[in-house]
Amino acid sequence: MKIRKKKKSPGTVLFILPTVLLFVLLLLYPVLSSVFYSFTNKHLIKTRLDMVAFENYASVLRDKEYWNALLTSSKWTLICLAGQFLIGFTAALSLERIKHGRTLFRTLLIVPWAFPTIIIALVWKYLLNGVSGFIPNLLLKLNWVSAAPQFLSNKDLVFPTLVFINVWFGFPLIMVNVLSALQTVPKELYEAARIDGAKSGQQFFYITMPQINPVITLLLILRTVWIFNNFDLIYLITGGGPAGLTKTVSIYAYEVGWGLKSLGRSSAVSILSLIFLTIVIVILLQLQKKTNKNE
């Protein structure tokens, strides 16, 4: 603390100046303009610009489809997060456990991360195609199913299928970070626990988890934002269908902003999402603080 006070001098400003400039030039202006647009009838290509007060917000909040989309988005974010973390965690723990081929497995498991969304959508759509897709036909050949499963159109399968694709793509990031976090946990803690007779499950919850808790929170927040805002994966695969089953807020915003070209209304949707996400993140951070205190 003492140092900080003493060292404050004009030179220090130079360190933070680029970030501040970036913030003002690249972020403040578009964010404020979005807030402003959300109170206008701004059109994507027309020149009109009248203040409409809260009309955009009201019309969005009145729209049953928006609420459905918000529900879908929440469900989507929650389940995908759970899936990514579950697979990411178990993969990392398994990698910790094995002795041979660790690098090989780690390298193979990381591959999905390298895929741009366009290719993810393309390749999975092709592989899962209900007529000529490789996977449904393989299942059929193996006699595991009696008819080719329609992964992308059956109303009970489509959501889980999309979750699967999302988890497929997202788990490596979690895995890699958990893996590195695990390495920072002092080995002595485990030794001590083992002597005390703790089972491995107990070890995990009482030693590992608290130690890597901060990393997890950070990842959780970044992933929450990413999954919630992600637009292209779902849009490219199902377009939000069938019958709106996979229509998230991002797709809703897209339809409003580009289909109807109502930039005002799509701004309102985004600002609402921003508020929603902020609340979620604040809750997450509070939870983390609490668990830290409980230690």
């Binding site: 913030f23 972020l27 578009p30 979005s34 915003a253 897209y254 985004s270 999402s273 921003l274």
Partner: peptide, 24 residues
């Protein structure tokens, strides 16, 4: 090191902006 209070605000502002969709 130098601007803990202002820095915290700045970081929060940056995160907030990060949450806006690119489409917008």
């Amino acid at each position: 090191r130098f601007f803990p209070k202002f820095g915290k605000l700045l970081t929060q502002g940056l995160i907030l902006a990060y949450m806006l969709p690119t489409i917008l």
